[in-house]
Design a protein around this nucleic acid. Structure first.
Lengths: 349, 349
DNA sequence: TTGAAAGCGCTAACAT
DNA sequence: ATGTTAGCGCTTTCAA
């Protein structure tokens, strides 16, 4: 490589470009940003000078001056999980289209880290998409006071002035209950999520409501609490079946839980769906790939992520008011609830 | 909420804190950062004033002044994939410990987006961890010229002055070849990755070398090219088996490929492992959960991510020289290569 | 131990 | 159409 280092003396500044082009610094700035009219000749010279010197605008200085940070913060509980991973991808793509960067923070379900992240993002970002794991984030108030728009996604955050994009968890869980009943379930088990999560409580309430509407007595419903993870599901189903071996239909609060539980049940010699029905929530890509494929309630994760970042950018750029959007969900029936020979008195619905 | 807005007039500045505390702005600054001695009394007053006004330091201004950005850029091909998702999590955690933020960019395997991201991160970050999909990123030169440390991870990037953290892909693929031979494979198929990726070519070369060393003739080895994804594996195995139905052992360049391929083969009525052996590469969490569990070459993804961010932070903070670290990999034998009744003349090894 | 003031690189208001 | 200059909020000399 016969390459002579052009400028060993640090980054090239706008002043150097201006000097090199023989114009003033403001003409150089305007030629580059196009925020006011500049003669074609000058533009030409500035562009050439910039290229020759390898000029790159210092975004930090620009931000300090304009107040435009061109960055959105994203706070998620777990990047590893494809459910959030996919949403991050969507947000990043959409943000990039508008010229925004993404500052990511992973909290690993730790409320403390979530609060610290929130605090640390002030003065670095124009707005935040928050996948919270704390029901009422008191830490939000300073941000809102400072006028930094925040859109909560997936998990409900109760705070005035907050945007929100959520799934209709209640309806989805009710549909799941109805579907399990229709598929021949008689004694029901539910893997609930952590108490503090709004999705967990909505799904619990929806499921109970659905069963009640179908005339299932409370005595035929058993619940255990479990983490939102594969391992959580595995442990949960063990506890559930140990105490209630007569359960023949299981609803899990997430697909990860459902899959952990289903594989554990298969391992323990139970037959799915003939002996035990399984229904999850989310429709992650793996759910369709298992044997048997998992019935689940599909969330429109992409749609929600897109709605969240769109709303946020709108709030940031045009000062739009926050809204709350609730996305419908849909039951996807697969083999894990399809009994070949069912004893249930289901007729054509 | 009976809560009076404290400061409707935007963010609190250091000057306001200083005034409120009755000290000069420089004393206030030093009291807060502790970079020079300040009387306990003043410290006390400044701290109280800051708390009372809800002061938050403007990181952008600080950055402009000090040149410390306290941010590392991370560029990955696909956040959705837990392989990268996990590494992002590790990087984010480690960075946070040192007080660094993470600016994430998702390229979706698009070299163009990778280049744009690289360019956009200059002047916003102190260093970059790059999961590249372009063999020789010419776009890197400007960054290196400006003295911004870059550590490539996973995919090899050839450029002087670059740090590197890689797996020993060659050895891993060679182990896989040996293992498939030992497990009774006779006619071999390989799902290769995209030509441009260094991991793909290393794994291809390692696999061929391993087979050759085991005395397998080239005529008994068939390859097809496939994307690094579930769908890629599914399509790849179809093409492979259509043309070479006598293949009885398959090595895929990634677990995602392997899983797509194996499930497709099972769907098509092939028996695994009795009829067809499968071995992947990565050891993602799902590989152990399938039926049958997938034999694979485990990469120490966490270790690599930690090494990459550690090296980068060292380069950023102490100006350490870049290094290249190669992590060992290990074969994890599971059911997908364990023949119950094998016709192979394997004796106790 | 403290304060005054320069200046990081840029944009925008104010001049011309 | 272009140049001059103030100043974003902070850290850090330089002086006291």
């Amino acid at each position: 490589m016969t390459r002579t280092r052009p400028e060993p003396a640090g980054p090239v500044t706008l002043k150097q470009v201006a000097d090199h082009a023989g114009v003033s610094i403001s003409t150089a700035s305007n030629a580059l940003t196009g925020s006011r009219a500049v003669s074609p000749a000058s533009v030409q010279r500035v562009l050439q000078a910039a290229a020759a010197l390898g000029y790159r605008r210092n975004e930090v200085a620009r931000t300090l001056r304009t107040g435009l940070r061109n960055t959105v913060g994203v706070i998620v509980p777990d990047v590893t999980n494809p459910f959030w991973g996919g949403m991050i991808g969507t947000i990043e793509r959409q943000a990039a289209v508008s010229g925004f960067h993404v500052a990511l923070t992973n909290t690993e379900f730790d409320g403390e880290r979530e609060s610290r992240a929130l605090a640390g993002l002030v003065s670095r970002v124009d707005g935040i998409v928050l996948f919270s794991t704390q029901p009422a984030a008191a830490t939000l108030q300073p941000l809102l006071d400072m006028g930094i728009p925040v859109v909560a996604c997936d998990e409900v955050v109760e705070a005035p002035g907050l945007g929100g994009v959520y799934s209709d968890n209640l309806a989805g869980a009710r549909d799941a209950a109805r579907h399990l009943v229709d598929s021949g379930g008689r004694v029901f088990g539910m893997l609930e999520g952590p108490e503090a999560l709004s999705t967990a409580s909505s799904r619990r309430r929806g499921f109970r409501a659905g069963l009640r509407e179908a005339g299932v007595p409370d005595s035929a419903v058993h619940s255990v609490r479990a983490e939102y993870s594969f391992e959580g599901g595995r442990d949960g189903i063990r506890r559930l079946l140990r105490e209630h071996s007569d359960v023949d239909a299981v609803f899990a609060s997430t697909d990860n839980q459902a899959i952990g539980a289903m594989l554990e049940a298969l391992n323990a010699g139970r037959a799915v769906p003939d002996d035990l029905l399984f229904c999850g929530f989310d429709d992650i890509s793996w759910s369709a790939r298992l044997a048997p494929p998992l019935t689940t309630v599909r969330q429109d994760a992409d749609g929600m992520a897109a709605a969240a970042i769109d709303m946020l950018l709108e709030m940031v750029t045009t000062g739009a008011a926050p809204r709350v959007e609730v996305f419908p969900v849909s039951l996807v029936a697969r083999e894990s609830t399809r009994r070949t020979l069912t004893a249930s008195p289901v007729t054509i619905t």
